[in-house]
């Protein structure tokens, strides 16, 4: 931590992002014990009551306690985004490594497919795949993963293309290292910083996409508390003045996405020395 603060503004940005994200993660983790009401239970209070001492964030159109729903509602989003980042990482990174290291026809074929996916608007593919797979955390994660695999692939591929021409890779060949040794001990460790940056920014995107999917009804079962879900059910009541049903979940989604974006942007500036003054 102390070494981060010494690196100027980008160090502080990383710290701020980490604080936001870890606060939200901890909040979600301990929510079942601190929530004043069962977040799914209807009619714990009057319908659409504005924030009051008894219900600090108001109640929903079904009379659920908004505060409890905010505390518990991050769980699905965090699960989906973590899972999708994991899937992206496990597919995009090895594919990018092999494709650019091997080169030739394999590289061309991979790049063509990946570029085709990349050319589509992300949310449209995610909706299409999600509609095919159906509801559920895993299905959401998979449909989001498909959208973001190309960004991993492209970053890894371009990095490997430049790293594999460097002298230390040539030196590794000179001492008789096999191709996979070179790939995993000389090339891969030097790509990791870029992957970390992509992964954190990907986290933020995955959260927003997950919110989008839930908003149009492709999320999880209705009874599970979820910020995206509350946006869907709440926006119809905005015109009747019930701003609190969508305002609080919206703020939470923005905060979580902001936290990851801050980490990503800060790290990319820290790890990429060329951007530093």
């Amino acid at each position: 931590m102390t070494s981060l603060t010494k690196k100027g503004p980008s160090g502080w940005i990383v710290i701020l992002g980490t604080i936001i994200v870890s606060a939200l993660v901890i909040m979600t983790a301990i929510a079942p014990w601190i929530a004043p009401h069962d977040p799914a239970k209807t009619r714990v209070g009057p319908i659409r009551e504005p924030p009051s001492p008894q219900f600090p964030m108001g109640t929903t159109h079904l009379g659920q306690d908004m505060l409890s729903r905010i505390l518990c509602g991050g769980s699905i989003m965090l699960q989906v985004s973590t899972l999708s980042v994991l899937v992206c990482f496990l597919i995009g990174v090895p594919l990018g490594l092999f494709s650019s290291y091997v080169g030739g026809v394999f590289d061309r074929a991979c790049s063509l497919v990946i570029d085709a996916v990349y050319a589509f608007p992300g949310l449209v593919i995610a909706i299409a795949i999600s509609a095919m797979l159906g509801r559920g955390v895993v299905n959401m994660a998979l449909s989001i993963a498909v959208v973001y695999i190309p960004s991993y692939f492209r970053v890894v591929r371009s990095q490997v293309l430049s790293i594999k021409e460097l002298t230390y890779v040539e030196a590794a060949r000179g001492i008789g290292a096999k191709w996979y040794t070179i790939l995993f001990r000389y090339v891969f460790p030097n790509v990791i910083p870029s992957i970390v940056v992509v992964a954190t920014i990907n986290f933020a995107d995955a959260i927003l996409t997950a919110a989008g999917l839930t908003f149009i009804g492709l999320g999880v079962e209705i009874h599970i508390p979820d910020w995206g879900r509350d946006l869907t059910s709440g926006w119809q009541y905005l015109s009747s003045g019930a701003w609190w049903i969508i305002a609080f979940p919206g703020i939470m989604i923005i905060l979580l996405a902001l936290g990851f974006t801050l980490i990503g942007e800060g790290l990319s500036e820290l790890l990429n020395p060329k951007l530093q003054r």
Partner: peptide, 26 residues
């Protein structure tokens, strides 16, 4: 072979013991 640029010929993410000992392992 030993290269011209000592700043480029060593893997920045390998400790000296691993860099020098790697040929033995290979």
């Amino acid at each position: 072979i030993i290269f011209q640029d000592p700043y480029a010929s060593l893997n920045p993410r390998m400790k000296i013991i691993d860099a020098v000992g790697h040929p033995l392992e290979i």
